[in-house]
Design a protein around this nucleic acid. Sequence first.
DNA 1: CTAATAGTGTCTATTAGACAGTATGTT
DNA 2: AACATACTGTCTAATAGACACTATTAG
Lengths: 275, 275
Amino acid sequence: MEKVYNSEEEFLRDYDSSKFEKLSMTTDILIFSVSSEEVDNYRKTDKKKMSILLVKRDNYPFKDKWCLPGGFIGIDEDLDAAPKRILKKETNVDNIYLEQLYTFGSVNRDPRMRVVSTSYIALIDKNRLTNNLSNNASWFDITFYEEKDNIVDITLDNGNTTISFKIEKILREQTTDRYSFKILKNDSLAFDHPLVILSGIERLKNKIEYTDIVFNMMPEYFTLGELQQVYEVILGKKLLDPAFRRIIANKVEKTTKMKTGGGHRPSYLFRYKSK
Amino acid sequence: MEKVYNSEEEFLRDYDSSKFEKLSMTTDILIFSVSSEEVDNYRKTDKKKMSILLVKRDNYPFKDKWCLPGGFIGIDEDLDAAPKRILKKETNVDNIYLEQLYTFGSVNRDPRMRVVSTSYIALIDKNRLTNNLSNNASWFDITFYEEKDNIVDITLDNGNTTISFKIEKILREQTTDRYSFKILKNDSLAFDHPLVILSGIERLKNKIEYTDIVFNMMPEYFTLGELQQVYEVILGKKLLDPAFRRIIANKVEKTTKMKTGGGHRPSYLFRYKSK
DNA sequence: CTAATAGTGTCTATTAGACAGTATGTT
DNA sequence: AACATACTGTCTAATAGACACTATTAG
């Protein structure tokens, strides 16, 4: 028979938290940025790509495979504090844009034991990184390609290694925008991280349209051409100049600085204007 | 010194999962529906409200306070399976619309021990419930009111009990749509559930604009007036008839059935039309 | 001069907002 | 007849898409 308590204090003094079987929690962080690939033609501007930071596992499970930076949630650590701590460790930078993405909790996602993982998206301008990444971390350029029938092809490339995977998106209900993801092919990414990365890319594509999060990936001063390229690479399509400028007009302010040196008309540098 | 392993199998055989301190996970479910309040005037249509299912706690902590239905995640249970199981238990209905909302993980959100909770939104048409709710559960009508300066006032009422709380929304960064919530007043809701409820309402308000999730709260046949009222009560504002009908035109199909009996022109019944 | 990007003007198409009007059942 | 809701027509305002044009620099 259960004991009857007369106050919350009494109950808590007696409480045995071991009666439920506990589990481990981790966090995975999608650190997104933008990279520029130099082009041989002196007139042309650098080609921009989305990029993501991965780390190479030096331990089992998935030893020597690449995965998202992450780690365990401390028992005395706020859920949001863990990704902050890990981000600081990996990048040596504070004040990085961070938002919770999704919590993944299939029973067998980790071969060691039951682990539930809350993923986060971080956005950063690479110029803020003063080149002291932790030593098994590396930036991978993202190539994202959606085939007709809800099959998504993603390729990550850091110059040495190419990782590619393919995921099928299955609409869960007619009424919503939520998909179930099914991994069709995955060479070399650890855990269920292909799913996490795809979720993150989709979130980014969505939110770039109705928030100002892009500016977390931009340097303080930028040209509108550069900004437009970042939009285009994230959305995966070309935008028309006048329409683009109308839309971002009230988000940026023109400065007196200019960018010269390309073999073409110089452009004004703009800056993010918060409301 | 750490032991060196030569294969994943060997590593896993040896793996001691107890070296990290584990924690408990729960799920909280926001079960939303729509209720109609009868009006004395025979001509007028019933006034619709959003409603949410709460349960009364019969144990410490927060004994006798109301809270969201929820429970612990089983060690061998997929994260998504837990809310499904609890939903079935509380409502006796299968196939309810369910989507993950957010994972709350402040260190002290539960006085017993460290508990991280993943919240879910469920949407249901009350007509599907054949009146066998679990016996300490009750529907509360929601009144939602946003004061000028990001202070939100929410009142829940089930006819006997009125619960009200007040939350301040603080924009986290200039660039995003994410808020931190701060509870300014909370009489009688257990845990951090005021935050969970507010997050859920905001998600609902957002998604009703670009998905078809409303139809999960509607009966199979409905009039456009009823549908419009549901939109209005969720969005918290009046809509213009012609605009509303244009927007939902391709989401519904007219049937030959009609609704008569109000002291006014009868209306056609419509049905959700999936694409 | 040329290639390449910067930046603007303007027309058109589409969508959203507003208002006024007609239609029809119950009491 | 009167009230309340159903439903539609149409004008206007705002926004998005498309194209064409001018501007300016390094080589």
